[in-house]
Design a protein around this nucleic acid. Structure first.
Length: 423
RNA sequence: GGAGAAAUGGCAGAGUGGUCGAAUGCGGCAGUCUUGAAAACUGUUGAGGGUCACACCUCCGGGGGUUCGAAUCCCUCUUUCUCCGCCA
């Protein structure tokens, strides 16, 4: 959620930048300012009424004490009128504030200067590419065929137990998955992130804090009996650690990492691109989250990008980094880099990480602040990224490391798996 | 799930209808003293709205009510604690 003060002071910039998302925000921005003007006017009127009422109440108290009951009763009539006025003003103020808030919820974050204008993933900008695309033997298979051939992931069994998009990992497949989780967590903690184990269900306030609610509830599984939501990413419980928190400046930066399963309804997804591990309702992910001083958040974003590069380099996977265009950047993000691994047997790029700087957009909702050097509370910047999302990394490993003899486990994972080949 | 108790500032903890945004202690910050530090002493120290700045308004777990006036009384929800039950 953008701050009204920021919108007021940077009206033209906000409109111009939101155009990168193909959003014409001029009407909304003008409405925000109008609503806020109304809000201020009503607040001032209400304050005046309440001030008068407070003064009278004190007088009435004094009059009672000195036994001047008649005078007191006279004043009571007056306060009765003030009460009606203040009630009306309170209602108007409430509806105006509500309208303002609802409007603010609809306005996406202002993209960073470097974000290219664009409509879809076709307009994303490739900023980095590394790793060699292997030449596979004749008859190389996509990962879902490999999964069946070596009996390491059973999609049909998942269908039976739950439904589509809930695969069952078996034997060496399960072990490889666990190895990857452990490896990622080790890399992240070595880079200074503190490991957390987080709840997999969150309440409404948390969903709201990171922006899944009120608009995107269709993406989350909702346990209506208890009014809880299954997390779509560890970002939700992880970032909500800092809801309603005031940090001291010396506590910054904060870095946390956590492994969680993620649950996504993915309503409306279908087709060849969702085959196998490409798109699931339940998948595993290791997330990194940072809280940063506003002056250092972009430096931190670069740091996160480099950290993920290191991991992919160590895994020797071919990958590229995209700077997302305005139209493809998520609602709350100011700047997002996507990491994609090349899935050789499918001959396509698969997104395995998304790293974003939200600036104050989330912090404003969360009321996540720090006490700055002037002793004032100031909104912090939040960032997060996947390091990494499991299924597509797994797909990439299975497909890129396949040989005629089996799937060779990347060397640095072997201590975690306890085996060198799946065959 | 049943019975009872509680929720106040960073923390502890007073406050049971007006003079309470709230005693006191601890902690934090600034100063005095000291070569420096500790101790001691003095001052200061919640958040949001509003204003050029003041004034002023709101907030004592959330919501609603009674009253001229609520931290204080009533209703309700949530959470915590104790006891019982169930249980990995």
């Amino acid at each position: 959620m953008l701050q009204v003060a920021f919108i007021r002071e940077n009206k033209d910039l906000v409109i111009e930048r939101l155009a990168k998302r193909n959003v014409d925000a001029s009407q909304m921005i003008n409405d925000v300012i109008t609503f806020d003007d109304d809000r201020k006017r009503l607040q001032t009127e209400l304050d005046k009424t309440l001030a008068e009422s407070n003064t009278l109440s004190k007088e009435i108290g004094n009059l009672y004490k000195s036994g001047e009951v008649e005078k007191a009763n006279l004043l009571k009539e007056k306060t009765g009128q003030l009460k009606d006025t203040s009630k009306e003003l309170t209602e108007n103020l409430g509806s105006t504030t509500e309208a303002l808030k609802e409007l603010l919820y609809k306005i996406p974050n202002v993209p960073h200067d470097s974000v290219p204008r664009g409509n879809s993933d076709l307009d994303n900008e490739e900023v980095f590419k590394a790793g060699d695309i292997p030449t596979l033997h004749h008859g190389a298979l996509p990962h879902w065929e490999l999964a069946k051939k070596y009996d390491i992931i059973d999609f049909e069994l998942g269908n039976k137990i739950t439904g589509a998009g809930f695969p069952v990992y078996k034997g060496k497949g399960a072990r490889l998955q666990r190895a990857l989780i452990a490896y990622f967590l080790d890399k992240n903690t070595a880079a200074g992130y503190t490991e957390y184990q987080l709840p997999l269900l969150v309440n409404e306030a948390s969903g709201f804090g990171t922006g899944q609610l009120p608009d995107k509830e269709g993406q989350m599984y909702h346990v209506t009996e208890d009014d809880l939501y299954l997390i779509p990413t560890a970002e939700v419980p992880g970032t909500n650690i800092f809801r309603d928190v005031v940090l001291s400046e010396s506590e910054l930066p904060v870095g946390i990492t956590g492994y969680t399963p993620c649950f996504r309804r993915e309503a409306g997804s279908y087709g060849a691109h969702v085959r196998g591990l490409n798109r699931l309702h339940q998948f595993d992910k290791v997330e990194i989250i940072r809280v940063e001083h506003p002056s250092k958040s972009y430096q931190a974003l670069d740091g996160m990008v480099n950290h993920i590069k290191d991991i992919l380099k160590a895994l020797k996977l071919p990958y590229r980094i995209l700077r997302l265009c305005g139209g493809d950047t998520s609602f709350a993000s100011a700047l997002t880099y996507d990491f994609e691994v090349f899935s050789t047997a499918q001959d396509r790029w698969l997104e395995i990480s998304s790293v974003s700087n939200f600036e104050t957009f989330q912090a404003n909702r969360l009321k996540l602040r720090f006490k700055n050097s002037d002793g004032k509370n100031e909104l912090a910047h939040t960032l997060n990224g996947s390091a990494l999302a499991l299924p597509r990394v797994l797909a990439g490993i299975l497909e890129n490391y396949q040989t005629e003899d089996g799937i060779v486990i990347p060397e640095l994972l072997q201590p975690y798996t306890g085996f060198k080949i799946i065959n």
